[in-house]
Design a protein around this nucleic acid. Sequence first.
RNA 1: GGGAGUAUAGCUCAGCUGGUUCAGAGCGCCUGCCUUACAAGCAGGAGGUCACUGGUUCGAACCCUGUUACUCCCACCA
Length: 913
Amino acid sequence: MELASKYDPRAVEEKWYQFWLDKKLFHSEPDHRVPYTIVIPPPNVTGVLHMGHMLNNTIQDVIVRRARMQGKNACWVPGTDHASIATEAKVVKALSEQGIKKHDLTREQFLEHAWEWTHKHGGIILQQLRKLGASCDWDRTAFTMDETRSESVTRVFVDLYNKGLIYRGLRMINWDPKALTALSTEEVEYKEERSKLYYLKYYIKDLKDLKDLKDLEEQGNIIHRDEKGYYAVVATTRPETIMGDTAMCINPKDPKNQWLRGHRVIVPLVGREVPVIEDRYVDIEFGTGCLKVTPAHDVNDYNLGKTHNLDTIDIFNDNGTISEQSPLYVGMDRFACRKQIAKDLEAAGLMEKVEDYTNKVGYSQRNPDTAIEPRLSLQWFLKMQHFADIALPPVMEGKIKFYPEKYKNTYRQWLENIQDWCISRQLWWGHRIPAWYLEVNGKEEIVVALNEEEAKKIAKEKYDYTGELRQDEDALDTWFSSWLWPISLFDGIRNPGNPEINYYYPTVDLITAPDIIFFWVARMIMAGEEYMHDVPFRNVYFTGVVRDKLGRKMSKSLGNSPDPIKLMEEYGADGVRMGMLLTAPAGNDILFDEKICEQGRNFSNKMWNALRLVSGWKVSDGSDKSDQSNQSDNNSVAVQWMEQRMAQVIEEIEKDFDQYRLSEALMATYKLIWDDFCSWYLEMVKPAYGTPIDRETYDATISIFSRLMLLMHPFMPFVTEEIWHALQTIGKDDEQAAFINANYSIMNQHMPTSVFYDQRMLDEFDTAREVIAGVRNIRNTRNLSPKEALEVSFIAADDRYRFANFNGIVQKLANVSAIKEVKEKPAGALSFMVGTMECFVPMPENVNKDEELKKLQDELKYAEGFLRSVMGKLSNEKFVNGAPAAVIEKERNKQRDAETKIAALKAQIASLS
RNA sequence: GGGAGUAUAGCUCAGCUGGUUCAGAGCGCCUGCCUUACAAGCAGGAGGUCACUGGUUCGAACCCUGUUACUCCCACCA
């Protein structure tokens, strides 16, 4: 078999993915095995893969593949989200490009377009996940608006309505004037903005003269007056809302504004006369202490309006333009109006001053360019206190674990301050609210039912009504379907107790981004507790945000987001996966630099070349009766050592996985393969050019290499499958090889588990390695050719640093002709120390006495300093009395070692000078 | 305004129960090598007052006070 010197992922990746699909290796059915379930955070159906998805799905794939290889029945369910606002916006935009306006269409016509759009663009992202290697059970692909999921949503709505947890009411909500829909409080993101604070004059009605002006001022009142009369000053960031003012408010305890009590003031420009009300809500320190009250357009003002029985004047249309209810500026956009009104106020002498000001403005999460407008509106709500009550304990009590744990706090804080969830959206793309309206005795009544037929039945029973019903036009918030995801995927809402939901629920791990902890994670826990009386998952792994290498969020407008598909084409999916994982400790943001993928690509190549090496070996068939037919001691030691080392690292890897330290597990595996296996083991057993290797070592090598591929497989599925197959088919005839290739997969193999290992052997190797490094170092500094064999002798002060088992290996790897134990330092030798062992390389012609002396003296100085610090501890009574025995023993060992070392160094120095 | 987190080598991060994992890893950088698997490589090397401050302790990167800087979440100050 002739192998190219560079690994080419392109052909390999496609081939194996197809193979896995053909063999249905991702598919799961309930059986006797332990289930391992994970549900994908469903990406937007019309979305395309971005780096966040890459990270999230790579992590999921790693843990799913590992679980599968651990013999669990792994089931990773994929699917997409209908993303009502985002998708509807896209469809509206596409239609308008064809000159079609949404509201020229009927609901049915619009939905036809929307489905068409969904089918055309939908699922691209799922195809892209295949490139990544995602081992999802594609047969289970779901959509939040498919039949099962839709019906689940309707049922849950009806159920919660019947439980009294869903209600319809007029409330202050967040309105998106572009998407023309209500939003939940969670969907509003506040951004700091530089704006202006306008100080407006509100003249006092019928106040021409204040007789006790002086007294009032002495009491602390701040009184404004000009030629037109007395006036109050109101500070506002939103002068355009004055048309909706129905009061001015002061704090009853504010000494500055006592003089305003009981008066009426005139809204500037508008001319409306409004009362001065008093409420402790007003902050005395802010602005002038006078607050304009616009109950229709501000949550606090709304509350004031309720307490003080104020009128509500809604001066905005749905789209943010000024409504007919306003006496001025009708039809003008709110921001244009703000500019204009500022000018007009100025011109009319009604503006006291304007200051620069920074405040926070709410924006729609889905329409980041549109400032939301607080607005009084009739909407559907879910009462949340009940859900907060059931969702808090499982997380606080550790039934669900968060990684990293700090998100527990965030979670608790949110639940403890929960607000009712506005679940209705004025959209067509989504699950239509299953509520029907009817009129009974001139009064509107509501019937909530699974479908119209049911609704009619209820209307008949409850109201003796047989006429037409009118269904609510609104759709539900997207998250009202995704919160059921872990249940509805297994049809657990419509068909509770079915074998699938019983088997797969609860899922094990949820991998998601922290920004949807409230939107999704919390609500899934609520739904899980409500409908399954059990948690939906055991562990939540929060990924970080993928940023560029400068730490900026990746965004389209910055253009700093690489296209994952292109990255995979350049570095291979394995390379990109490894790159992502290397920089991704749980919960930390990822500063992603494309260059890191190179490391992944290089590593694929490294493993590939190890395969090239091994596959080029000729195995001794015993016929030559040469030494190569039997395993040498060297090879035997090498194999044993590698086995110990593997066992040790596997233990580490298992620990890392238990704690979801994926990047560390990967790094440990990486080093095991690159350093231990390639740099050390393969060099140990590598036969001289043209000579064969013994059968035993060869088989052991194939076995070790294969197991290393298993360990690496979850991280880099493609290259490991390729190499593993090559290893299984080496030396087989074509027919056997074809059979193996067609019937076996690395995915079906059992992940190696930790076993007992011999620490002494590992320690002995470490000594040997240091000896080798010492010799190599001497070569390096003296510019000696690696081809020139050297001799090594050593003085062992005690037995801890002996390495006799590795003598042959040291000889081979450092090109040493002989290793001798001596009692005294040979004349004319370079030296180095390994622990307390002195090593010498005799080399009379190369010894520079002064240099050597200096080196030794430096070492001596260090050792003496070290000894001093150790002695400091040991001569401290409190330490000897207070520290645990084991610690003291360690210090005594340090002392002994240091003393031995110092004696050796002194002897060497003496012999040189 | 409330809460959480972070600060260790040029960069990204480990450092778990305070003590031989104690100052580490990967990448980058420097030096020398195209050595018969791999230059996408090999061998070696340099790099750090563990943000600052005070304390607890026989002993602190680690525990506690405070300070500074950055990040995130929450909140109705117009």
